[in-house]
């Protein structure tokens, strides 16, 4: 794909994301970094705030949704959290939880590849909705686990039940 076509497709996807967020009346900030068109936004789940960013890469033709969880994982429960993240990722149909064991952080990531494709508003909406539901389901439970309010076994049981 020529860069011009890539930029055109990326702008279409980017504008679809903008329109979607505007329709929801969610405030967001926009920026551009290297080959990425960036939208940063924040919403609220049942319990915790959910910050998220869209990166639309004009060169690679990939739109990525990324949402960092707002807490750090203590090194003392590193292995347990890794097993829990593995259990969650096994069940997820779309997207993944990313555990950075150097930075002790967890984030959710999902992406859409759009080269030569017609990506609908519903696809972007579904990507966002799925991400927010997944994050809302697990972020408070993972925080409780990190704060030692939920045991490893209870967390595992919760994952298997949902």
């Amino acid at each position: 794909m020529t860069n011009e076509r890539g930029i055109k497709s990326a702008n279409e996807v980017y504008n679809t994301i903008r329109t979607l967020l505007q329709e929801k009346q969610w405030s967001f900030t926009e920026s551009q970094k290297n080959n990425n068109l960036v939208i940063k936004c924040k919403t609220y789940g049942d319990d915790l705030p959910i910050p998220f960013q869209f990166y639309v890469n004009t060169d690679k033709c990939v739109a990525t949704l990324s949402s960092p969880f707002n807490f750090k994982v203590p090194k003392s429960i590193l292995e347990q959290v890794a097993l829990i993240i593995n259990a969650i990722n096994t069940r997820l149909v779309e997207g993944k939880l990313c555990y950075d064991i150097i930075e002790d952080t967890i984030s959710f990531r999902s992406s859409i590849y759009f080269e030569d494709s017609l990506i609908s508003k519903n696809a972007i909406s579904n990507m966002l909705y799925t991400a927010l539901c997944t994050i809302d389901l697990y972020n408070d439970k993972l925080l409780s686990m990190v704060q030692e309010q939920i045991s490893y076994d209870d967390m595992l049981a919760f994952i298997q039940a949902n």
Binding site: V93, E94, I112, Y113, E115, D116, S117, L118, I119, S120, N122, A123, S125, N126, M127, T130
Partner: peptide, 13 residues
Amino acid sequence: TFSYFDSLVSKKV
């Protein structure tokens, strides 16, 4: 996985 929800994706996907 790739969720194409009402989209038309190309072979490139």
